[in-house]
Nucleic acid binder design. Structure first.
Lengths: 369, 369
DNA sequence: CTGTTAGCGCATTCAC
DNA sequence: GTGAATGCGCTAACAG
């Protein structure tokens, strides 16, 4: 077979309108052409080459207004929807970023995702979401994700980072959100973005101590999530700074039901404390409510503080003292960094840390505003 | 140029290990090969054809254990990550579904998304998320999305459906979540999945009337969201059934700040009512709290009920009477239907409607549990 | 301003 | 059980 000009097989185009389609009525319904118009069919119908079709669709190169119109007309007459995969293959970019988070309960992940998606969209990137919880084989799920994105953002607490960063070994840019440096095996090309934890936790704990409390308990398991262990470190630091002895953390999962259980252990006398520093608001809220229902006075008998400033924290009485993180900004930042990296930028040598804000309400002992 | 067998340009493969890589130590770090291993480089390294590589990676066809190992070895020596776009182009499927929702505040969208992602993942599909709010040009964003997915699920209240379904005209399967039949212009190939609204709203309203209330107000704008207008229809129906005259809805956006404003209008006497049926919990909660802060007794002076059963509704006192929707299931269902459709199934003729559940707590006047 | 021509990397018949 | 060849639909030089 000699080198003949590429002959596209005439797609069984069975024109929906008989023939003289000189001025087709676009509003005519039911005129769906076979299926799968391609750049070739559009080009043919417009009487131009595929390059021209590509040009007007891309809007990059200059095309005469006349041919431009012909192409546009053909495009919507045929209901042409370009095949993203073909474009991706040609431009050698997926134009998509992956985001891996554990789940989507509470405002934290949602805000993160919103920030990420917003910025990604501005940058012309799609976002493919992967929820790690409940996936039986996370590594392979991540591997599959890597197949279709230019870069991946992972939440540090997703328990994926180690596996992930190893599996990808510099193959794709990765940014770890709210992770710790230990997530980065041997200086791989991984970046970190996070909200400040240690200092604000120390500050919050000190504030509670300033209220005259002396037997504080830290509630929540620091082990699985880097940010939580940082918060516990702050808790410890505040104690150490005054020569006090910090208690071991009460290691429970971050569930409302676990909060109730902790409250019961306090009510039964098993746990003793005059203040509770909780790993997040869900825990703090469920504990406080249970305590109150049992007749305890918060903060009179016992102070309770949380972390995240969820909506409920504004509605309960007393209001929940907590810490607000710039979660949305974290998402934005992650997308931004990913974009830089895909563009060829070198990974930032040090983690980017965003400031947090302690929100004082009544549950810590402050005069309720 | 005669038809010579396709000569792949030897990728500048500068082998990271000198030569005799007979038994390469996989743990050796820093051995990242150039960049972008392809199926060709893997094949070459394994001494097989690309077809064979494809076979073992796909796991479909039968390959001898020996060659299988060689391939696998080459794959991870080269850190081969297949290019999803190339696969998509070849198999003529994106293996991805799009989900279009307005935003991600509150538990509703999150649960929906979780359900959708979970089911999609089980079906081997990625999910590309598009948040409509804040996008200046939603139709084009959706158009771009259509470029890279096999099907799209849209939230009825996203205000996209009409544009969307028109723009896609049967090009891709679409399922509208919590939309109304009016979203489906002229019997296009669009499906509807939704939670029941009219009946449960009527039931909830009747319950409030049964508490002896007579001047009910519906708070929230039914116009933009089909599900809200259905709920208002239920509100109306409950009144009509007893020969009562339903009030016009108090048309406000679904924001806490708006709830506060509504409460203020009640406190000032501008609005008069002994019960408030709110379009969602956020509204109901902000109104109730404001009323209480001003000294009003809920439900004594005025009853308040919401919709969605958010977390806060369990924590406030009195507990918020509300309606729980099977949101997660809605997401699962949407993914499921999309998959069926992509598989060639015909669109379901009638909407699939999932049952909801009225949750009675104290804010309606019930003895608070 | 427009058309021709190569690939992009993978899955997939066919042969063998 | 394995290899050679072809095409998926699009972008991007390169000519004209």
């Amino acid at each position: 077979m000699a080198t003949t000009p590429r002959q596209r097989p005439e797609r069984a185009a069975r024109p929906s309108t008989p023939s003289t389609a000189s001025m087709p009525d676009p509003s005519t319904p039911g005129a769906t052409p076979a299926a799968g118009a391609t750049i070739y069919s559009v080009a043919e119908r417009a009487g131009v080459s595929i390059a021209t079709v590509s040009r007007v669709l891309q809007g990059r190169a200059v095309v005469s207004e006349a041919t431009r119109q012909k192409v546009l007309e053909a495009v919507d007459a045929l209901h042409y929807v370009p095949l993203g995969a073909a474009r991706s293959l040609a431009v050698r970019h997926h134009e998509a970023y992956g985001l891996v988070i554990p789940e989507l309960t509470g405002p934290y992940y949602s805000e993160l995702l919103m920030g990420f998606e917003t910025r990604a969209a501005e940058l012309g990137q799609s976002v493919i979401l992967l929820l790690a919880n409940g996936k039986s084989d996370v590594p392979s799920a991540v591997g599959h994700l890597a197949t279709r994105v230019d870069g991946i953002a992972v939440l540090g607490s997703a328990a994926v980072p180690p596996t992930l960063t190893r599996a990808l070994r510099g193959r794709k840019p990765v940014v770890v959100i709210a992770g710790s440096s230990s997530d980065v095996p041997g200086g791989e090309r991984v970046e970190l973005v996070a909200a400040e934890n240690v200092h604000s936790s120390e500050q919050l704990t000190a504030h509670v101590l300033d209220h005259g409390r002396s037997r504080l308990l830290y509630v929540g398991d620091p082990a699985p999530a880097p940010d939580i262990s940082e918060r516990y470190a702050g808790f410890v630091a505040a104690h150490t700074a005054r020569g006090l002895d910090p208690a071991e953390p009460v290691r429970v999962p971050f569930l409302e039901s676990e909060g109730v259980a902790v409250a019961d252990r306090i009510l039964s006398g098993e746990l003793e404390a005059d203040a509770l520093v909780c790993a997040n608001d869900e825990l703090a809220l469920s504990i406080m409510t249970r305590l109150q229902d049992a007749g305890r006075d918060v903060p009179g008998d016992i102070a309770v503080v949380g972390w995240d400033d969820v909506m409920t924290s504004r509605y309960v009485r007393p209001g929940m003292t907590t810490v607000r993180q710039p979660v949305h900004e974290l998402g934005v930042l992650a997308a931004e960094r990913l974009h830089q990296r895909v563009d060829g930028a070198a990974p930032l040598p040090a983690p980017v840390v965003l400031p947090t804000e302690v929100v004082l309400r009544g549950s810590c002992g402050c005069a309720t505003p």
